[in-house]
Design a binder for these strands. Structure first.
Lengths: 264, 264
DNA sequence: GCGAAAAAGTGAATATGATTCAGAAACTGA
DNA sequence: TCAGTTTCTGAATCATATTCACTTTTTCGC
């Protein structure tokens, strides 16, 4: 009978051991242990990626590193792709942390919006392997081979980040910095989001941007974001050619907001 | 002695049979036949992708379909990833064709700029498999496993598209539609480029955008491009909430520019 | 044309590495 | 304690990319 409920709920790895107790928001000891092991496996997987590169990540290596059998590994992750997306989910927390600092900045809404983009950039700069994993995991081929449950988990894991940014939009509207109502609150950050992802993708295709005479893609992106913010009439308007401003912004963000001390 | 020259030039598949005759821009019969076979293999590979999906594309299937041995296949493509990037190179010609129509539109420079983005969108709509291949091929993992020669070939193959867009920027500057000189001609389209790529990536991660209450990503992108163009002060300015305009634009483009007859 | 050397092509064998599953071990509750 | 159940195990399987020893074809000096 408990069996039946469990079966109904199970539609993928990571869900496998969830029972009705979930509804009470309490995890059994077993469930906690299992979650802990999954987290541990992900940590080790990330360490392997850092050490040998994403391409060399092998399920058998991870099993060895995590001191579990292949079968156990596969009880957590339905496939290698599922593991990659799980890694990406794991990165959400770090991104969120960074993002929180950005939006908490004691500055006007526009600066805070820009800071969210820079938070992402800084994150990718500090964690190039996560940048690579995130990028790869979201590509159609990998995405579709991950489990449905993991895809949902991924979307959920990014929700808080979305919420944070939506709040900035709402603040901007509330204080009059952002008059326009062309977009819903949810639609507004789309331009920023796509530029971030596109820049990341292009940046990592080594040699491609150089071929098109583009030197510092992230700096350039910030300038294009400035253009975009101006297009939204997000006050106060700024000149996108002001490279000094961009750099000052970078510097201030790093010192005032992200306190670069915590390099790992 | 000819051997030596050849050896020096050979640094990857696809280059393997290039000799000094290249410098005279004449291909020997052999070289032409080889090029023809490579093209044929790519056609068949694309057909296989269309029929069974990118994930199911197998080198052995392609060898069978192209009636060549595995070894021969590998004399053309150094790896599966190299083949994928070659497929992406192949798509450049089709993209270019579409793009040419867009920039030849009898409209103001701003509309033509927007039309280039729509050309890309339409291309991806008409050739979803190319959209998927292009996206995957440019991802760091695949990109780095393709041969250096192929990566260069890819960059070169996109050059004409870049040139076309740069011309639109130059035209806009010449006729006064685009006053600003914040960006070099090459830097100007970066915002558009990244939005296109980002939108494409997000769109194909099924379920993700829906999760964030984003309905029609490409329409939304066009509106964000309008914002961006406004930010550049690219005349004539337009209201990005004018969905009717966006749709009219789509319709006009499809009828006047891309003559949807040529659906394959 | 002839025949040896070089080039191109072949596909079975190899190599890699993801995934499975039959059985062993651990745990549970009476 | 023990039967039933869950969980873990890792060698075996399977899927495929890649290679390479060998065959066929082409080239080219005579």
């Amino acid at each position: 009978m408990s069996r039946n409920v469990r079966t109904l709920l199970c539609d993928g790895p990571g869900m496998q051991y969830r029972t009705d107790t979930c509804f009470m928001n309490t995890l059994t000891r077993k469930e906690r242990e299992r979650a802990a092991r999954e987290a541990d496996l992900l940590d080790r997987a990330y360490a392997l990626v850092c050490e040998h590169g994403l391409v060399s990540l092998q399920m058998s290596h991870l099993a060895a590193a995590g001191e579990v059998a292949m079968g156990t590994l596969y009880s957590h992750f339905s496939s290698k792709e599922d593991l990659l997306l799980a890694l990406s989910v794991r990165s959400s927390a770090y991104r969120l942390e960074q993002m929180r600092k950005a939006v908490a900045w004691d500055e006007c809404s526009r600066m805070r919006m820009l800071a969210t983009a820079m938070a992402d950039w800084l994150f990718m700069d500090q964690h190039p392997h996560y940048a690579q994993i995130d990028q790869y995991a979201i590509s159609e081929v990998v995405w579709n081979r991950a489990s449905e449950a993991r895809r949902v988990e991924f979307a959920r894991s990014r929700e808080p980040i979305g919420a944070l940014i939506h709040d900035v939009v709402r603040d901007a509207r509330a204080c009059g910095d952002l008059q326009e109502k062309y977009f819903t609150v949810e639609e507004t950050p789309f331009g920023l989001w796509t530029m971030l992802i596109g820049t990341n993708l292009l940046t990592h295709a080594s040699g491609l941007l150089e071929h098109f005479q583009i030197e510092k893609p992230y700096q350039l992106m910030v300038r294009h974001l400035t253009v975009w913010l101006n297009g939204l009439q997000w006050q106060p308007l700024m000149a996108p050619d002001d490279k000094a401003l961009t750099e000052l912004l970078c510097t201030r963000l790093q010192t005032e907001v992200f306190s670069r001390e915590n390099d790992e």
